[in-house]
Amino acid sequence: MTNEPAPRKRRRRHAGPSALREQRRAAARHRAHAPGTGKALAKQAGSSKALEKGAKSGRSLIIACGALARDILFLIRQHRDHIDLHCLPAEWHNTPQRIPEGVRARIRQAKEEGYARIFVAYGDCGTGGALDAVLGEEGGISRLPGPHCYAFYTGVENFMRHLERDARSYFLTDYLVRHFDSLIVKGLKLDTHPELIETCFGNYDTLVHLAQDDDPALERKAQEAARFLNLAYERRYVGHGDLATAIERFAGETSSKAEE
């Protein structure tokens, strides 16, 4: 017996080099046509799937990021008689380049359906002004104030004042705490590749939980998340911040319009 290590054997790609790449390309082509994606929505907007022309005549619509669904439904609970909510995929957070055209497609569909008033519940969300350009082109539709959800949940002014203090903070809203495992752990493959925890979060020092509710179970979950990411934990109760202000204003404006 020798101590020499056996030559390392490796697995070769089944169908030769780049087979995996082909597989991934095929999957991406599939995704591009799956429901809920930008292209599919754009198609849907002009297709028979859209409601009959004018079916929603006189009603108001909030087009929102899926991450805000629960909170917006709460905020409009008294106004469901005239406001509808339509959510777009929360996963677009990770591919913000899809947001502007996805939102445009839904706006056009809403116009077809006869909605009288539309509000877009997105921040800039990393579109670098592209979403604002679309909203301008579609007739000056309003959106939530500020760059992203962490800012408008905190209150944009307040958030911007503390940019420097918070430069090394990683924020989680209640939504993100609730879906931490699927969105962050699985989304960034931190479970199968724990070395990525350091690559992704090595620059942060604190996980700041921007809480909407007083919910001890959620608080515990947020603390666990902080431990998992090797970050200190801080809880800030912010409620719904500017999201509430904006949605309530829209609800008020639209109900007075409805009475006219």
Binding site: R21, R24, R25, N94, T95, G187, K189, L196, C200
Partner: peptide, 11 residues
Amino acid sequence: DGILFVPEVLL
């Protein structure tokens, strides 16, 4: 092209 995502790029 949206075929790979952030974790794959990181690896």
